[in-house]
């Protein structure tokens, strides 16, 4: 290769290849999953048509979409209930998880006394606890909320505790030398140090609170007016309304994705200025 210099950016073979790869990856990130989706939907459709599978066993994708539009009123109402419980549970998980983490780091005695029980609550499957909760809690919404909270609070608690304890030890010393109060150390040192850990826990908790909300509703079974998506799925299953089951399932998955994306975005916005995880690298 002869040396060509038109006064432009230096572009050797390696650099060109790297740029090409970058462009490919940037585009592929979106195009490839969509392509996979289209292929799967196409295959699904063909399998149903070729094998003449009745719609009450496996509906065609088109029918699922039609059902989604047709049953929108019912499904949307149910979606709102599920989303409401999920978000409320997440909020309580954040308050409870961060609150407990702060108390734990302020007092070793409290931590030693209660941490094992937080672990026990976490490792006991929610479907095993839920029936008991619905015996003792009259309000259906409160019961669902409690179940979703039980599933979601632990990642917030454990991550935030870890974060509060990971403040740079030299900075801790500096705060002590300057005679900082406990509150100042918490406010200006430990909470900011814990932020990236907390946000990691929050992303997990977002997904878990949705799972908690759905699972709890399965256990709660038939309910009155305010029924969520899980109940609609159960109901549709009894009636062999398979298209509606798929439509409801689609909405639940979509909700999960939106929650995850939202929390990831929040995390990025809060950390982008200073934290390693949010920094863009050139090479």
């Amino acid at each position: 290769m002869s040396v060509v210099d038109h006064g432009q950016m230096a572009t050797d073979k390696e650099e060109l290849a790297r740029l090409r790869r970058q462009r490919l990856e940037a585009g592929g990130k979106w195009i490839l999953p969509v392509l996979v989706l289209l292929i799967v939907l196409g295959l699904w459709d063909r399998v149903v048509v070729w094998n003449e599978i009745p719609h009450y066993i496996l509906p065609r994708p088109k029918l699922v979409l039609e059902t989604l539009i047709e049953d929108w009123a019912i499904l949307f109402e149910a979606l709102l209930v599920t989303v409401q419980i999920t978000l409320m549970a997440l909020a309580v998980a954040v308050i409870g998880g961060v609150g407990l983490a702060v108390i734990f780091t302020q007092s070793r005695l409290v931590e030693m006394s209660f941490y094992p029980y937080a672990v026990i609550l976490q490792v006991t499957p929610i479907v095993a606890i839920a029936p008991l909760i619905f015996i003792y809690v009259d309000s259906r919404i409160a019961g669902l909320l409690m179940c979703a909270w039980l599933v979601a609070f632990f990642p917030v608690l454990s991550n935030t505790t870890l974060g509060l304890n990971s403040a740079d030890h030299n900075l801790r010393d500096l705060f002590r030398i300057y005679g900082a109060t406990r509150w100042q150390t918490l406010r200006y040192l430990q909470l900011p140090s814990a932020l990236p850990y907390f946000l990691g826990g929050l992303r997990i908790a977002g997904g878990l609170s949705l799972i908690g909300a759905v699972v709890a509703e399965y256990v709660a079974g038939t309910g009155g007016l305010k029924s969520g998506l899980a109940f609609r799925i159960l109901e549709a299953g009894y009636r062999l309304n398979i298209p509606r089951m798929f439509a409801a399932l689609f909405l639940i998955a979509l909700t999960g994705v939106i929650i995850f994306a939202g929390l990831s975005f929040l995390s990025h916005m809060l950390l982008r200025k200073w934290h390693e995880s949010a920094l863009k690298r050139d090479i």
Binding site: D168, N170, L171, D173, L174, I177, Y178, G179, Y188, L189, P192, L195, K273, W274, H275
Partner: peptide, 19 residues
């Protein structure tokens, strides 16, 4: 003597990365 008497510099710069 009070806490105001001292300034400290460590081997690392020990800055708060979020600030």
């Amino acid at each position: 003597h009070s806490a105001d008497d001292l300034g400290v510099v460590f081997q690392e710069a020990t800055l708060m990365p979020w600030a």
